[in-house]
Design a protein around this nucleic acid. Structure first.
Lengths: 313, 313
DNA sequence: ACGACAGGTGAAACCGATTTCACAGACATC
DNA sequence: GATGTCTGTGAAATCGGTTTCACCTGTCGT
């Protein structure tokens, strides 16, 4: 180990071997058109021969571009355990990698977002940031204003000119709800996500729209408010079940809550889907694997991640 | 924007304000003991005043330490969709962040691991690498030999002196199997994971051990070999069900397969757990949310991630 | 033919820290 | 009082690329 020196070729060596200057080496490696073909060939040959590998750190320092994209996730509710975001991350990472970009994963408690994460992001050592279902608009806007490319996966609270990618929340909610009517439900209810956020509101809007379309008037009490967590799904469903006129079909704004809702139904001694039908949102692995199988609106998750990444690029 | 210049303080400015040299600034910021308290105070004050933020990239270049740890995941089977790994990642990221380290997420198809990923890792721009259930021992060993700190989450094929962290596969397998005997199963079978890998083998060993303990001789045909995927769980279970003497209890080496197995059982017209009992391994969100609830051996997943990260540090 | 112009090229500055090295003083030793 | 540590400190080199800028060609226009 000690005796075996590592070559670790640098520009200067390549330049020497190829008989050109370091500047030219840089030009070739960065695809500058204006270099004479002969030299391009010479440099490439030297690179090949020496097994050169560019040092991204040095490059980053000199050029001011780190080629690093951060993924920021709030993990209060075990959010990242939701296969949905994991899949998105996966898609993002793949696409970025194909584009010679690195993915920085920042999982953090939401109350700490303003601390280390903000600190880091503002430091300008990242070329872009992708936020997952981020509720702290302030930070995002601030970063965007600083000129940092920002993409939000999942809708931001208000469309403040921020780039975002999301699944079709409105259409999905509508479609899911329509499904309930199609299978004959008469008393349709909903368990919403965080309606303070765009995504949650749109899903609810879709629900309401479908109800109108079916000339069905939703009682206010039939709209229960959850927060996307398993527990909230369970609890809200329990509340719905306790009503005199129980709903016979429920649109739940994400799969995690839907599974919680099913749990509540079973615990209360009812059957799903015989007594009460549940339709979720996401069609995650969760929906596919839970028993009884959960009907869910499909979302092309990895594709979403890929779109996010491409948008970033 | 154009008119508003960003200060972006550097060492030289701090040095000037504090009336010391850049070298001293560096020493203070890196906690060098040998600096006179007065200057330390002066520097800290200047840092505060200017709102200085260290440029990690420059630091990385100069010191040769990138403070970046890579997480490498093969994503052939939608592995990352398995909440298990997502949770581990989450734990890793949190701990690393607390230690001022960044997490680089590299999701890649396993046939591409040797390409870009290996290339990158060998480039030495990462201070360490964490592999998730990596089967390519060759690459891992090579990196380790190059002096790169490597930790494997999940057991490596052979214990080649590589650091690894894993759940108690043997104990878990044993415990899970024992549970089947405890609830009265007479014909106990297993669906294994990849027994070519240590984790899979150990879980099976635990199973066998528990069988011996209960003086139960497992028929060879009762040991079905899966590959941790949902499909394989389903298919292997179907195989088991087709036997003349059906098992009445099955230990399945992970939850994903277990859910697949339950699916197969239901599809075949049986009930779970009435007719056949299934016990999984991981106790992931999957186990908690699927219906009927899947009995599973608990694994403290985030803790695992944290352990991995700490080991790396 | 001669200045203008454009394409190529290399020397050197630069990015922002870290780290080596040499050198003052303060203090102890003989 | 001369010599010898030990501390604390700053100037300068360094990390490995990128980028500016000046300059040197050869070609074109007239």
């Amino acid at each position: 180990m000690a005796t075996n020196e590592k070559p670790k070729p640098t520009y200067s060596e390549i330049a020497e071997v190829a008989g050109v200057s370091e500047a030219t080496v840089s030009r070739v490696l960065n695809g500058d058109e204006r270099v004479h073909p002969d030299r391009v060939k010479a440099v490439k040959k030297a690179v090949e021969k020496l097994g050169y590998r560019r040092n991204r750190i040095a490059a980053a320092l000199a050029s001011g571009k780190s080629r690093l994209i951060a993924i920021v996730i709030e993990d209060d509710l075990g959010l990242f355990s939701d296969p949905f975001w994991a899949s998105v991350s996966s898609g993002v990472s793949k696409v970025l990698m194909e584009n010679e970009l690195q993915t920085l994963l920042m999982v953090t408690a939401s109350n700490q977002v303003d601390g280390p994460v903000a600190h880091y992001l503002e430091g300008g050592e990242v070329d872009g940031a992708i936020f997952f279902q981020m509720h702290k608009d302030a930070l995002v806007k601030k970063l965007a204003k600083q000129g940092l490319p920002v993409v939000i996966a999942g809708s931001p609270h208000k469309d403040a000119g921020l780039a975002y990618v999301d699944t079709d929340n409105y259409g999905g909610g509508k479609q899911a709800t329509q499904h309930l009517f199609n299978v004959g439900c008469k008393r349709v209810a909903a368990i919403t996500g965080d309606t303070g956020a765009t995504a949650g509101r749109l899903r609810l809007d879709g629900f309401v729209s479908a109800c109108k379309l079916n000339k069905y008037e939703v009682p206010n009490s039939y709209i229960a408010h959850g927060d996307y967590s398993y527990e909230s799904g369970r609890d809200q469903m329990t509340k719905l079940l306790a009503m005199k006129e129980r709903p016979d079909g429920v649109f739940v704004a994400n799969d995690l809550m839907a599974v919680g809702a099913i749990k509540a139904i079973r615990d209360a001694g009812f059957n799903c889907p015989e007594d009460i039908k549940i339709v979720g949102f996401d069609d995650s692995m969760l929906a596919q694997t839970s028993r009884p199988e959960l009907t869910s609106v499909r979302q092309d998750i990895e594709k979403l991640g890929e779109t996010v990444a491409n948008l970033m690029i």
